[in-house]
Nucleic acid binder design. Structure first.
Length: 476
RNA sequence: GGCGGCGUACCCAAGUGGUAAGGGAGCAGUCUGCAAAACUGUCAUUCAGCGGUUCGAAUCCGCUCGUCGCCUCCA
């Protein structure tokens, strides 16, 4: 089995071969920290989190670097609007992002550099570009000369003439060509600045990623990723900057994740439908959000609706119910049939090897769920022995998969108690009613028992009687 | 205007040349005091439409229709 990845650079799936055998250098564009992160950031983060985890599972020694862009026009605008220091803004939203990531169960990347920590590298890079003739200074501003770079457009499939004619950019008189973009911006009064050979200023939007890649991962990296919208111009410009400076290929594979729509509409400020991660986490479990994000292939657009999230909560519940059953039957991942486990794992990996097809991989999980329930039903019905080692293989498989997908990692008890917490249920009160109903049932007073159940149903509580006990949970 | 993606059942969604995974919803059954859960059966002779290539196509090619994105800040 070999891993195949869809490469935006070639528009096809390719066998993944890292530059150095056994080692992977992965860079993903992180957030510009000027506001709270939204569900779109969550998709990017979760997609690459799974890619990172899966590459680790495959045994790669992986360096995953994800930056924070903590200096940018948007941050400055926000600071001006709110009358706060730009550093305070950046710091606040870095913290906010980190908290969101923790809430979503996203693992920490190997490195999390900040743009402002790489100013020296940025300046050095710009100097190289100027000396090689790819950039020019106009006063204290420096621009990149797009036409000098031969491969410009190779990532986004655009050609310079089309861009020129369709250009909606306002003409900046200082540019030699309208397509040229800023590497270094001179600072106006009250704006943050760093000393540079061209005067006081700050880096342009694209240069910081080129610099941080170079600084943390080297001249050529294996995978560069980000949201689809970054293909042009951000990543196109990164290629132009990096390859012009080093003369070497910048990234061998480009991975871009698709967008998240909200109720069939694009998230945008004008529509006012931006859904922050923290809001999504208030309404849904992290489990169902991750499951939702991973239930489609990472490149397809997905639609966030309350209904879809509910469906995914139901999926998660089905998973935990089954795991609970498996555990209660006495099976465990410590005692498993190795051959069966390998076979099951191979099915899962075949899906993941095909461009991280988490949707298909999750499909495999639910096939296993049905299989496990079937065998438990069968044993119960016929009074035959429970196939503990076979179920152990399933349990083992699930624990391996949860380490990769970052879902299904809780104990069933934890999961169900979180469901109750989120629904703000007074467990003590429910328990009391459940006990009263059990007593009524024992006394064969079914009218009373049903009356209590109706009461509980009104509170959104579902009861399941088995073996003289009653399991209860909240209706999703 | 230029470039690119997508269109699979009631909904979500895999499948990119060998005869339609999975989940949810619905309906019927088994189980149950009744339920719930679980299981079983049912649920696309067909993959937007029309042509073409092929022994064979949801998968490849062409056209049409629909839809979305990028070209400007954006995950």
């Amino acid at each position: 089995m070999t891993l195949r990845i869809y490469n935006t650079l070639t528009n096809q799936k390719e066998e993944f071969i890292p530059l150095d055998p056994g080692k992977v250098r992965l860079y993903v564009c992180g957030p510009t920290v000027y506001s709270h992160s939204h569900i779109g950031h969550a998709r990017s983060a979760v997609s690459f989190d799974v890619i990172y985890r899966y590459l680790k599972h495959l045994g790669y020694d992986i360096n995953y670097t994800r930056n924070y862009t903590d200096i940018d026009d948007k941050i400055i605008n926000r600071a001006n609007a709110d009358g706060e220091d730009w550093k305070v803004i950046a710091e606040r939203y870095i913290e906010s992002f980190d908290k969101d990531m923790q809430g979503l169960g996203v693992e920490l990347p190997t490195n999390r550099p900040r743009a402002t920590e790489s100013i020296e590298k940025i300046i050095e890079l710009i100097e190289t570009l100027i000396s090689k003739g790819y950039a020019y200074a106009v006063g204290a501003d420096v621009f990149y000369s797009v036409r000098k770079f031969e491969g410009y457009g190779k990532l986004s499939g655009k050609n310079i003439e089309d861009l020129e004619s369709g250009a909606r950019v306002q003409i900046d008189e200082r540019k030699e060509d309208p397509l040229d973009f800023a590497l270094w911006k001179s600072s106006k009064d009250g704006e943050p600045w760093w000393k540079s050979p061209w005067g006081n200023g700050r880096p342009g939007w694209h240069i910081e990623c080129s610099a941080m890649c170079l600084e943390w991962l080297g001249e050529t990296i294996d995978i560069h990723g980000g949201g689809k919208d970054l293909v042009f111009p951000h990543h196109e410009n990164e290629i132009a900057q990096s390859e012009a400076a080093t003369g070497k290929p910048f990234a061998r594979n480009w991975i871009h994740n698709g967008f998240v729509n909200i109720e069939k509409e694009k998230m945008s400020k004008s529509l006012g439908n931006i859904l922050n991660i923290s809001e999504a986490l208030e309404e849904n479990s992290a489990e169902s959000i991750r499951l939702f994000l991973l239930s489609s292939q990472y490149r397809s657009p997905i639609d966030y609706t309350s209904e879809t999230l509910k469906e995914n909560e139901a999926k998660a519940e089905r998973f935990y119910r089954t795991i609970k059953r498996i555990e209660e039957a006495g099976a465990s991942s410590d005692n498993f049939d190795a051959e069966s486990y390998e076979k099951k794992l191979a099915h899962f990996k075949a899906a993941m090897d095909d461009d991280f097809n988490t949707a298909a991989a999750i499909g495999k999980v639910f096939e296993e769920i049905a299989e496990a329930n079937r065998s438990l039903d069968k044993a119960a019905k016929k009074g035959t022995e429970i196939p503990l080692e076979e179920l152990g293989a399933t349990a083992r498989l699930f624990s391996e998969i949860s380490a990769i997908l970052g879902i299904f990692a809780k104990s069933p008890a934890e999961y169900f108690s979180e469901v109750k917490e989120r629904a703000s249920i007074d467990s003590a009160e429910i328990e009391k009613l459940v006990k009263a109903r059990l007593a009524a049932r024992a006394a064969k007073d079914f009218a009373k028992a049903d009356e209590i159940r109706d009461q509980l149903t009104a509170k959104n509580i579902i009861l399941e009687d088995r073996d003289g006990e009653t399991f209860w949970t909240v209706k999703q």
